[in-house]
Design a protein around this nucleic acid. Structure first.
Length: 323
DNA sequence: CGGGTTTGACCCGCGC
DNA sequence: GCGCGGGTCAAACCCG
C-alpha cells in the first residue's frame, strides 16, 4: 500500500523506546514493554466474552521471540498487544497502566464483567471492573453482520433482505486481537495484504481510524488501525477474525528457507515457561482454560489457550509455534 | 486496466 | 423517538 496520503494528521516523531533483543538477528525487529522497561511481557487471552486469561512471559535472549523474523515488520517496534486497548481508544479515560497482549473477543470487549486481573511480576497489569465497564461502554459499537458465511460469497444482498437477515442471525463476533505498536507508519507490514475500505474520524482524537480487509478471497479478516491519542507514537492495530490462509510473506519466507509453511516460531518463554526466571501468572475464568491452567499452576507454567487460534489471529510475525 | 484508496453517504444499535 | 458514533458501502479517483 503505497503510503497514506498527506491528508493524515501530522505524524509524531517516532520516539522509540528501549528495545530488547529477540531471537532473530535483524536489530530492527525488537520489542519492548509498553512502559519501556525490560522484563516480562504480559498478556491476556480470552476464550469468549465471559472469560479471559492472563499470562506473563519474558522474551528470553537467544531463545526465540514471539516474532517470526521472516515476516516481521521492518519499520516499527511492537510494544505489546493490549487489553487496555479500550483505554487507548477512549482518550481521556484512565489508563490501565501496562500494555498487554490480548484477545479482544467479543461483544467488543476483552474481558468479562466483574473480572479483574493481576499479574504477579515486575510488570503488573490490573484490570478493574471500572475498566471493564468503561470498555463495555466504549465497545458498544458493533459491526454489520454479513448474511453470508465463510463461503466467500461477498455479493451484496439486496438491502431489504440484508437487513432482515442481519437482524435475525446475529453471528458471533470474531475474536479480536489488538496490538500496540510504536511506529511512524500507521499501516504496519504484517505479511498479509490488506485493502482499505473505510476511514473514520475518531471522537476526541485528531487521528483517524482506518478499516482494512484481507484481500485474500474467502478471508474475512479485518483490521482497524488507529493512532493512540494519548501517545501518538503508538499505533493501535486490531485484528478481527482468523485468516483462512497463510500469509504471502510467510509462504515466501518459508519457501526460501525450505520450511513447511506451518512452522512458526514461539518464544522459548512460552514453550518452556518453567525455565523462565520470571514469575508467571494465569488467571482464567473460562472453564476449559481454567482446567488447563490449574493443571499447570503448580509448576508455575503457563498454558496458552489455543495455539490454533493464536496462530490464526496473531499476525505472522507473531505466530506461535506448536510445541 | 486492474487493484487499491478516498470519502461522503448510509446503516444500525445504544443511550438518553 | 432521536441523535450519536462506529462500521461499512460504493462511486470516483488514483496509480503502476
Amino acid at each position: 500500500m503505497s503510503a497514506e496520503k498527506n491528508t493524515d494528521p501530522p505524524r509524531p516523531d517516532p520516539s522509540f523506546g528501549q528495545s530488547f533483543p529477540f531471537f532473530f538477528d535483524d536489530p530492527q525487529y525488537s520489542a519492548f514493554c509498553a512502559d519501556n522497561s525490560l522484563g516480562p511481557h504480559e498478556g491476556y487471552f480470552g476464550g469468549d466474552s465471559s472469560s479471559y486469561m492472563s499470562y506473563t512471559y519474558q522474551y528470553l535472549g537467544g531463545g526465540g521471540g514471539m516474532f517470526d523474523a521472516s515476516v516481521a515488520p521492518s519499520s516499527y517496534e511492537v510494544i505489546s498487544a493490549t487489553s487496555d486497548l479500550q483505554d487507548h481508544l477512549n482518550p481521556g479515560g484512565s489508563s490501565l497502566g501496562r500494555g498487554a497482549l490480548g484477545v479482544v473477543n467479543d461483544e467488543n470487549h476483552p474481558l468479562s464483567p466483574n473480572s479483574s486481573i493481576s499479574a504477579s511480576s515486575s510488570n503488573e497489569a490490573i484490570v478493574t471492573e471500572e475498566d471493564v465497564d468503561k470498555g463495555k461502554k466504549e465497545g458498544s459499537s458493533r459491526q454489520k453482520v454479513k448474511g453470508c458465511e465463510d463461503d466467500g460469497d461477498h455479493e451484496k444482498l439486496k438491502k431489504g433482505d440484508e437487513k432482515a437477515s442481519k437482524k435475525k442471525e446475529k453471528q458471533p463476533k470474531e475474536p479480536r486481537f489488538a496490538f500496540l505498536t510504536k511506529s511512524e507508519v500507521d499501516n504496519l507490514e504484517d505479511g498479509y495484504r490488506w485493502r482499505k475500505y473505510g476511514q473514520k474520524a475518531v471522537k476526541n482524537s485528531p487521528y483517524p481510524r482506518s478499516y482494512y480487509r484481507c484481500t485474500s478471497q474467502k478471508c474475512m479478516v479485518k483490521k482497524r488501525v488507529e493512532r493512540s491519542f494519548q501517545d501518538p507514537s503508538v499505533v493501535i492495530t486490531t485484528y478481527e477474525g482468523r485468516h483462512s490462509h497463510l500469509s504471502p510473506a510467510s509462504l515466501r519466507a518459508n519457501a526460501a528457507i525450505g520450511m513447511l509453511p506451518t512452522t512458526y516460531f514461539m518464544p522459548r518463554s512460552l514453550s518452556s515457561l518453567g525455565q523462565s526466571s520470571f514469575p508467571q501468572t494465569a488467571s482464567v475464568h473460562e472453564p476449559a482454560f481454567q482446567r488447563r491452567v490449574e493443571a499447570h499452576q503448580d509448576s508455575d507454567k503457563l498454558q496458552l489457550p489455543d495455539h490454533g487460534l493464536l496462530q490464526d489471529m496473531i499476525p505472522p510475525f507473531c505466530h506461535a509455534q506448536l510445541p
